[in-house]
């Protein structure tokens, strides 16, 4: 027993020494599921730039999970300086339930506070055996569709909206028909994972399903990680313009004294350097020049905005 106590004491000392040696400034970025690789790259670039500018070391800690679940954790006290979530609704919930930031948060940064965009595409098995080209192909008999649970996953909500938008914009389309199409689509889903990465693993690793409804960045990354010999990405004719927003949590940064660096961090996401990193990680950049340079990575398709669907 005494040994165990000594060990515990040694561990506490080791831990606190480690903390004392750590960086001058720390930020916690609570993000959604597929941005793991993106923010790893962005954080390194920002830390180098901040060091050059101010001489301060900044360490950015990351937490990833389903967007809704992450918002819930922040509301329950996960001490984030910034949130970078899958959709505005989740940051609205933080603003309403925990009052950590003002309701007009989305007006404080350019482009609806979304430095990059994405969309929903299809990932199919190599050779596209079921000839899946566009939305109507998903509800053909026998097709199994993999998509996460829209109640917990931001990507899944965008997928839901994309399917809705497709059906609504068909000749003679109306909300009833859109609802019927989305209902038919979810009848083809055998597994609902909680987050985008879980669904990707279900489709890619476990080999379940014929088509994965996924973030463009997530599908392209899976292709890169798994090699192009097992899967291919199919772009439907039209999809949704997915806008994953970012925000500083005012109450938290003021308590931590990190407002300056947190704001600089989010503004950095709009710079040319960051936009190129985002494009390399398969997020569609906002900067027109960067978008032009990476045009080959992002095939053109009709992208409906939320305002197109719900009229603002």
């Amino acid at each position: 027993m005494r040994k165990i106590q000594a060990l515990a004491f040694a561990a506490v000392v080791a831990l606190s020494v480690g903390a004392a040696n750590a960086a001058d400034v720390k930020l916690l970025n609570v993000s959604y599921d597929p941005t793991r690789e993106l923010y790893k790259d962005l954080n390194t670039a920002f830390a180098a730039q901040w060091k050059a500018k101010t001489g301060e070391n900044v360490i950015i800690n990351q937490s990833h999970g389903g967007s809704g679940a992450q918002a819930r954790a922040v509301i329950d006290g996960l001490d984030a300086d910034v949130v970078t979530l899958a959709l505005a609704y989740d940051i609205d919930a933080i603003s309403q339930k925990a009052k950590l930031l003002p309701v007009n948060w989305q007006k404080r940064l350019p482009e609806n506070a979304t430095p990059y965009t994405s969309t929903i595409v299809f990932l199919v098995r190599k050779g596209n055996p079921w000839k899946i080209k566009d939305w109507p192909d998903l509800v053909k008999p026998g097709i199994q569709v993999i998509t996460p649970n829209p109640k917990t996953s931001g990507g899944a909500r965008w997928a839901y909206l994309a399917a809705w938008a497709y059906a609504l914009k068909q000749p003679g389309g109306n909300p009833e028909k859109a609802k019927a199409f989305v209902a038919a689509l979810y009848h083809h889903v055998p597994v609902l994972d909680t987050g985008a990465r879980g669904s990707t693993t279900t489709f890619v690793q476990r080999g379940i399903g014929d088509v994965l409804l996924d973030w463009e960045n997530e599908a392209q990354l899976a292709l890169k990680e798994q090699g192009g010999d097992k899967f291919e990405v199919v772009y439907p004719k039209a999809s949704i313009l997915a806008e994953p927003p970012v925000a500083v949590l005012d109450k938290n940064v003021d308590r931590h004294g990190t407002r300056k660096v947190a704001e600089a961090y989010l503004q950095f996401l709009y710079t040319k350097q960051a936009q190129e990193i985002e494009a390399k990680d398969f997020y569609r950049p906002r900067d027109p020049e960067v978008a032009k340079a990476f045009a080959r990575s992002f095939p053109p398709l009709t992208l409906y905005t939320i305002d197109d669907i719900f009229g603002g």
Binding site: A73, I75, D76, G77, L78, D79, K97, A98, R255
Partner: peptide, 19 residues
């Protein structure tokens, strides 16, 4: 948690329990 029984007082005292 922040919305829990002791959320506000813990935050004011800068004591972190969960997370």
């Amino acid at each position: 948690g922040l919305q829990g029984w002791f959320g506000d007082s813990l935050r004011d005292a800068n004591i972190k329990i969960i997370f």
